Computed example of a mutant assay.
Amino acid sequence: MFEIYLILATCFLLPICYLITNNLIYIYHQLKSLKNIEETKNIIYVDNKYILYAANIYINRKKWLDCITILELYMKQIRISELTILVKYYNCIGLCYQCANIYKIATQYYLKAYNKAPLIRQNLKNLANIYKLSGDIESASELHQKLIRLNKHEDI
């Protein structure tokens, strides 16, 4: 009888141990990446992929202000040729404001991203979603129609 109890306890605890270990490894990699960014000799010129990774870490941890601060700081240093990075920054900042229930400012950032790259689906989805959350159903449906037309043109 004791052996059956041990087998059942092991079967129950093994998946829990696996999930905890995976989360600890994920947290370790996040902290290691943030430490690498902090140890950079010239903190002003950090690669954009590290900035976006750090922003995603802050978003996952629901640290909206930290994410907005880091992106606003490094947004000023983006060259004109790096338009896609700037659009990603705008979308991340808009997401932070959206999650903080500050829809007007989120709409402004999503509009900035949309104006820079109007044919990117993610920009259309984000803008339609924030219009829907704000209660502007008419603008949201217009953007959904644009998204449908964009998908139809791509399928051809």
Rank of each mutant, 00 (worst) to 15 (best):
Q30F: 02
E154P: 00
E82Y: 06
L119I: 08
L14Q: 01
C96Q: 00
E72C: 05
I4H: 02
I43K: 15
T21M: 04
I70P: 02
Y131D: 02
I51G: 06
T84P: 00
E82Q: 15
E39Y: 09
L19H: 06
N126P: 02
Y110E: 01
L24S: 06
I130E: 03
H153L: 14
T40P: 02
I27W: 03
G94P: 01
K62N: 15
C11A: 14
K35I: 07
K116Y: 10
L111F: 05
I137M: 03
L83N: 08
I120D: 14
Q77L: 14
K116I: 06
L31G: 05
K63N: 12
Y131S: 03
K112Y: 08
L143D: 03
Y97I: 07
T84F: 03
I102W: 01
L143G: 06
T21W: 12
Q30N: 13
K146L: 13
S139E: 09
Q122I: 07
I102C: 05
I57F: 00
I105K: 11
N36A: 08
Y18H: 08
N123W: 09
K116N: 05
Y131A: 02
I44T: 10
I59R: 08
K41L: 12
L71T: 03
E154F: 11
A140D: 02
N36Q: 11
S81E: 15
Y53M: 09
I102E: 11
V46H: 08
E3H: 09
A106S: 15
Q122T: 12
C96W: 00
L14H: 00
I156R: 11
Y58E: 07
I7Y: 10
Y97H: 10
N42R: 10
H153K: 15
K132N: 11
Y5I: 15
M1Q: 06
L119K: 15
P15A: 09
K125I: 14
L119F: 11
I105V: 15
N22C: 05
H144A: 13
I105D: 04
L19K: 13
V46F: 04
K49W: 07
N42P: 01
T69R: 12
I120T: 13
L73G: 03
